[in-house]
Design a protein around this nucleic acid. Structure first.
Lengths: 136, 136
DNA sequence: GCATTTAGTACGCGGCACCAACTACCTTGA
DNA sequence: TCAAGGTAGTTGGTGCCGCGTACTAAATGC
């Protein structure tokens, strides 16, 4: 198996884990990512779009659906009358923590057969590839 | 960065590469995966569903849209009057080869800064995690 | 030969991504 | 100070996409 096959298949495996965890909370993968981004910041819509790599109209829809679920809320921007800031609600915080914990558990399960040394090595190698702009 | 963060972020990075390559050929990621599965087999719909981890009704839609693009065709199953087999068309083969080549190039670009030893190590570690059922 | 199971399709529903156009607000320059 | 140009976010349109349910034709098993 060459590098491409290995990385692509691993990517889909991780996506399956995210999809499964999301399904447990009736959340899509992109909703999980949204909550993850909002865990430690209160961005505007455009900044959210940059984090998630999505069109601003997609962000409008995503945030509206999350708002309808009472996972997030929009706040007027204090320094731009056009803008809004998006923050997690208490329910959103709770689901984000639960989701993150379950993802941690599933990834630990995935890597359980590896030695600690191999796991540390994989982490370091993967981290070296990830361009700065964390989004999950 | 712990193992979960590293693997999740790497997964999305690889997904961005797949999305970008797909966009160059006006294909979605799941369409790329479909073509990848069909590169070297002629499965029925249910088998396709197993490979792609999707409901059979989703496979019906996916194959119909690919058929409309003349990327695949349905053949009557020789041993089951109810079933069909799905195969790539010449255009489908061509796009599959082009897509695979471009994905290879982008993954090589992603890992270009690594030493050959690190790349081989990452490949081996990733391959060790991937459960058998290749689908890309 | 008939009842049960299965392969695949059709339909409904909601999510989701992008594009173009629009409105309200901000910035800039004269 | 005001007009022109730019920006933040929304709206509407479009097509893709995943799942669940129901259906039909074919296969299977008793």
């Amino acid at each position: 198996m060459d590098t491409t096959d290995a990385l692509v298949q691993l990517s889909f495996q991780v996506q399956r884990i995210l999809t499964a965890v999301g399904a447990e909370h009736d959340l899509s993968v992109v909703q999980l990512r949204l909550l993850g981004v909002l865990r430690d910041r209160t961005p505007g819509m455009l900044e959210l779009g940059r984090h998630l790599g999505l069109d601003k109209s997609s962000i409008t829809g995503l945030v509206s659906r999350a708002e309808k679920r009472d996972l997030v809320r929009r706040l007027p921007s204090p320094h731009d009358g056009r803008g809004v800031l998006v923050e997690l609600t208490p329910l959103g915080h709770r689901l984000t923590r639960q989701g993150a914990a379950e993802i941690d558990r599933r990834i630990a399960e995935l890597t359980a057969r590896m030695s600690a040394a191999d796991r540390a090595r994989l982490t370091a190698l993967a981290a070296a590839l990830v361009t700065p702009f964390p989004d999950a």
